[in-house]
């Protein structure tokens, strides 16, 4: 049996789309097998995701216990923010997480090889390895979401569930957009890894709380400069109906999936433009 990796030009768009996904899944399966070659490292990487998310969770729990009633939000509602951020982050790592390794790929000279192959470079970056830590992230995220959903103090109506799902999608796209934009710089500057690590830390630290507890200037910075508010706080405000001190109009919050999609498309265009100027830094 032969598989046609490159289109002959006569297939429909649907066939090409399906072929691209089949190829992506096959490469992902191979990547997973490659990571499984180092069994201990594989398990440790799963553990990395678990430990990282758990440590953030412990931090958030400690603050919740010591300082209840943050910004008018009840503890189950704050828990919902934390769980939404974890789910969208875990999905980001699973689907787009390789952009965080862009400087490493540039150092290894992988981008030059990607440019020679008949697949979009961004897609090849995403298929360059399997993010094993996403498994750990998803495990913690699923556990936390179960806790948050069962302890939630408002009824789960279909509308509220739809808002939750839309918020998760928006958060995922916004995070992907931010890191894709940063990785566009990573194609040229090795030091970009500082920025992506730092941004990830800020998102992990400040993405779990109702940001209306912060002064207006900090809230504005975390909304319009680094859009951490869009990851979970604003979507959760829609689910919970908590609008006290919210700095963003309700209409914008309601359109978060579209905002996220727009931001992601813009970041991809920026990434492509950056790639056209790629010169390579490796030997």
């Amino acid at each position: 049996m032969t598989t046609h990796l490159v289109g002959t030009g006569s297939e429909s768009a649907a066939q090409r789309f399906a072929a691209a996904w089949i190829l992506a899944l096959r490469i992902t399966r191979l990547n997973l097998r490659a990571r499984l070659e180092y069994r201990a490292e594989f398990l440790l990487t799963v553990l990395t995701g678990l430990v990282w998310q758990t440590s953030i969770l412990v931090f958030a729990s400690v603050l919740l216990v010591r300082f209840p009633g943050m910004g008018g939000w009840t503890s189950p509602q704050v828990l919902l923010i934390a769980s939404m951020r974890m789910v969208s982050h875990a999905l980001f790592i699973l689907l787009f997480g390789r952009v965080l390794w862009i400087t490493g790929l540039v150092q290894l000279g992988s981008i030059e090889a990607f440019l020679l192959r008949p697949l979009p470079v961004y897609r090849q970056v995403q298929l360059s390895m399997f993010s094993v830590n996403a498994i750990g992230d998803l495990l913690v995220a699923a556990t936390l979401t179960t806790m948050a959903v069962t302890r939630f103090d408002l009824p789960w109506t279909p509308a509220r569930v739809a808002l939750l799902l839309a918020g998760l999608l928006g958060g995922l796209l916004v995070e992907a957009a931010v890191h894709t934009a940063i990785s566009a710089f990573g194609l040229h500057l090795g030091g970009t890894v500082y920025w992506s690590n730092w941004t990830e830390e800020l998102m992990a630290t400040f993405g779990n709380y109702p940001l209306n507890i912060l002064p207006k200037v900090a809230q504005a910075a975390l909304t319009y400069v680094l859009p951490i508010a869009f990851l979970a706080y604003l979507p959760a405000s829609l689910v919970t109906g908590q609008t006290q001190g919210r700095a963003v109009p309700g209409l914008v919050v309601a359109l978060i999936p579209l905002v996220g999609l727009g931001a992601f498309v813009a970041s991809r265009l920026f990434w492509n433009a950056s790639l056209r100027r790629f010169q390579g830094v490796s030997g």
Binding site: E41, L47, T48, S55, I56, V58, F59, V62, L63
Partner: peptide
């Protein structure tokens, strides 16, 4: 001995940060 240590280093970072009080003062725990 292990050839790879990336994950161990990352786990150490998270554990160290949490248990040292890097995320929040240990007195709150």
């Amino acid at each position: 001995w292990t050839v790879m240590n990336q994950s161990a280093v990352q786990i150490m970072f998270f554990v160290q940060t949490l248990l040292s009080g890097g995320f929040a003062p240990l007195w709150f725990f």
